[in-house]
Write a protein that binds this DNA or RNA. Structure first.
Length: 197
DNA sequence: AGCACA
């Protein structure tokens, strides 16, 4: 580049070559749907670039003389088709490990597992005692609270461990109590104030 | 579908 820089190529006009390095390729071509997995495929673009007018010295001049001589004059202009460089540099952003799978996936999908159960669909005259009889057969049972807001009672059953609560939920799900008159109980994990958004 | 106490 220094060899040619400043060389007069048009003596009449006094024009001088000015050569400098191209700017670094800072174009960000983030694909819109780029998730953790990105398919890198340049094949289509590579074939379409061959007829791109990339040379500005094709100004129709007749004095395109090569100082190198005539030995490779036949290959100088026609075979200028450069093989398209594959600038598929491995992007560090693509190597981000996939987000950790939510290991807390539960049977009651969408709800956060916790050691307290919410029990609904109880009969109107279901008592705390009756429910406690059933729940206290399970290990880890802590306490039971029944609250009746409006019409039907709902219950909150607390256990020592989440797994114990889960066991009870799957075990007693849709099961009937002696006082049930509207089908089996509906049991979910109790809502926690600390859930992820 | 309905979620409270501490």
């Amino acid at each position: 580049m220094h060899a040619l820089n400043g060389v007069k190529f048009d003596p009449q006009a006094g024009s001088v070559l000015h050569i400098e390095l191209a700017r670094s390729n800072s174009r960000r071509k983030r694909k819109p749907g780029s998730g953790p997995y990105v398919v890198i495929d340049n094949r289509i673009k590579a074939s379409a670039n061959t007829q791109e007018t990339s040379s500005d010295d094709a100004s129709g001049d007749s004095d395109t003389e090569e100082p190198s001589g005539a030995e490779d004059a036949d290959a100088s202009n026609k075979d200028e088709l450069k093989t398209v460089k594959s600038d598929t540099v491995q992007d560090p952003e693509n190597s981000v490990p996939a987000a950790n799978e939510q290991l807390e996936r539960t049977i009651d999908e969408g709800a956060q597992a916790c050691s307290t159960l919410f029990i609904a669909n109880l009969g109107p005259n279901c008592t705390e005692y009756e429910l406690k009889q059933v729940l206290s057969k399970y290990p880890g049972f802590n306490m039971l609270k029944i609250r009746t807001k409006g019409g039907m009672p709902v219950a909150f059953a607390d256990f020592e461990q989440v797994e114990q609560a889960t066991k009870v939920m799957t075990d007693l799900q849709s099961s009937l109590l002696p006082s049930s008159d509207r089908g089996g109980m509906h049991i979910e994990y109790a809502r926690s104030k600390m859930r992820k958004p």
